[in-house]
Design a protein around this nucleic acid. Structure first.
Lengths: 329, 329
DNA sequence: CTGAAAGCGCTTACAG
DNA sequence: CTGAAAGCGCTTACAG
């Protein structure tokens, strides 16, 4: 029972292995009676074709590679939720690859290419621009279908599924400006994410358009670190609103502000750019731009299946809608 | 450049493909000069062996299957962090498999087995006991090394890496009892997780030992649902402490209690059993039993590599230490 | 230490 | 509609 092969099935069904293979891959080319007979044996023996052998012979692994910087971030996990759901639906397996910043990116990508995946979903938005370019080149040179998932790279023409983060952040900044706020700060992370650069751009555009100087803070994702920083920051600066790339950073700021005598939202309005569970558990609850991360994962995987099966694609850049969720902050 | 094969390398290095193969797999069996020559060509051509062909020929895929219920939960993501880090170190690729409750578990497992992974890490703690038994049987019948990762199943002898959740919860309950609390509730989820049953057991043991009736609440992980429930609950019940299987549920309870005039921790003490970022962002900050999820992932992967390479294993059940993190709740 | 050859378990033209 | 045979890109005894 450990290893039922196609030969076992062929023998038991008294047909050739070619016929068994056809029953599995091109059933319409097989006489219905023969087909039923073979299917019955397949079921009886609990036969499943060896995916590796099939992969070698057909040169299709029905596996997609998901390349990311860090699995453990909540946003990544949500993306993976959408990706795996759709992958399963289309019968693709998922191989996970991480890219550590210390390692040789080129070597790592070559290894990934050697894994013979049918397509790649690139979630890594922590790469420098030229590294990103190199990674994309390597994948495209190997002729592997590629979709950028929640990652934006404008230097090349690459299929992409994301949010128009620039516009989303522009909108929310504009809204705060219209409410009369002036000292609006934008909190980003020390660590570079390509997406955050686009968010910052939208913020800057709105501020400059309104004739104000953009006010940027960089901070850590670590709560104990950023709370110390925020405390210092509040001593020295006038601030009427804060927009944060991450909800958890926004919540940390709310806590520090409240503890230092500020009222949120009366003294300082605070907005997050994700809409995670943190937003609901914060007090006051966090107003957010909602970014549908699960959907980004699902749509990008669906787009990739189209490329892998050489289907016609009408639009290779998909920007999903977002909305503002008004809460109490 | 799309496809450099072992033949290309052999041709360029003027040796047979067997020698190239040996250079990659048993370099000590090759004359140093020949080896250098081949290695040089390999580098020049950017050759990486086709992982699929290698897998078929060697019957080792150097891939491990990670079987889980839901990728998007924070705890799962943290486990995956530990798993991928160690997998990378030992040069294993990761294939991700999810098990939806609606689908045929047996069929699904057969498919996973057909994927020819060298080992399986089972993270799914949402299965009923007998389904779990069947899954384990299928994997073991196929002779695939298996480690349960943050999942506990005592009906069979299976290698396991986890926390002794029963003891951890027993300890924290005892501590609350020693502080004079009597009406200590235990909040679990409607949804079944094998691990939560062990946590509940530890709680019950401590309560019964102290001569108190165990007080259990089941709730939803959804914030808007559990807050409604908690509000009702507080109207009708006397409560001095709450222990929650999930931090986010504990934080939600703190919010509802505070909004309804209770003081945490003076009126009601609250404890979480995970120690996630939620605990730090809550006000008051949440006291927790800290469960080192990343480490569980890492250690289970390391244990699995031992089984896959037929190394001696001194202990096939590893229960990692936990500690109590005192905060303000 | 090295090469020729068989084989891993499939798929896929090619005949018939 | 079905079977015999080549081939996918490797590994691994087996000779030498």
């Amino acid at each position: 029972m450990t290893n039922t092969t196609i030969y076992d099935v062929a023998g038991a069904a008294k047909v050739s292995l070619a016929t068994v293979s056809r029953v599995m891959n091109n059933p319409e080319k097989v006489n219905p009676e023969t087909r039923e007979k073979v299917l019955k044996v397949i079921k009886e023996l609990g036969y499943h074709p060896n995916a590796i052998a099939r992969g070698l012979a057909s040169r299709k692994s029905t596996t997609v590679g998901v390349v990311m910087a860090d699995v453990s971030r909540a946003a990544t996990a949500a993306l993976l939720g959408g990706i795996t759901d759709i992958a399963k639906k289309y019968d693709y397996a998922i191989k996970l690859f991480t890219m550590d910043p210390e390692e040789d990116i080129k070597e790592n990508m070559r290894k990934i290419v050697a894994e013979q995946v049918d397509g790649i979903l690139l979630l890594n938005d922590e790469l420098e621009l030229d590294d990103m370019g190199m990674v994309i080149d390597l994948i495209q040179d190997a002729q592997i279908p590629l979709v950028l998932c929640n990652t934006i790279y404008n230097e090349k023409d690459v299929p992409t599924v994301a949010i128009d983060y620039t516009k989303a952040t522009y909108d929310i900044t504009k809204k705060l400006l219209e409410e009369g706020k002036r000292e609006i700060y934008f909190a980003s992370t020390y660590h570079k994410y390509s997406i955050n650069a686009f968010k910052a751009e939208g913020y800057k555009n709105a501020m400059i358009e309104a004739g104000h100087e953009p006010l940027l803070i960089k901070t850590s994702g670590d709560v104990s670190q950023n709370s110390v920083q925020f405390k210092e920051f509040l001593k020295d600066n006038k601030i009427e609103a804060l927009i944060s790339v991450r909800d958890s950073i926004a919540v940390s700021f709310i806590n520090v502000a409240t503890e230092n005598g500020y009222k949120v939202p009366d003294d300082i309005k605070v907005v997050g750019l994700q809409n995670t569970k943190y937003a609901l558990l914060s007090r006051p609850q966090l107003t957010c731009v909602d970014t549908p991360v699960y959907d980004i994962g699902a749509v990008s995987m669906r787009l990739l299946t189209k490329y892998m099966t050489h289907k016609e694609v009408s639009d290779d850049k998909v920007f999903l809608p977002y909305r503002i969720v008004e809460r109490q902050s």
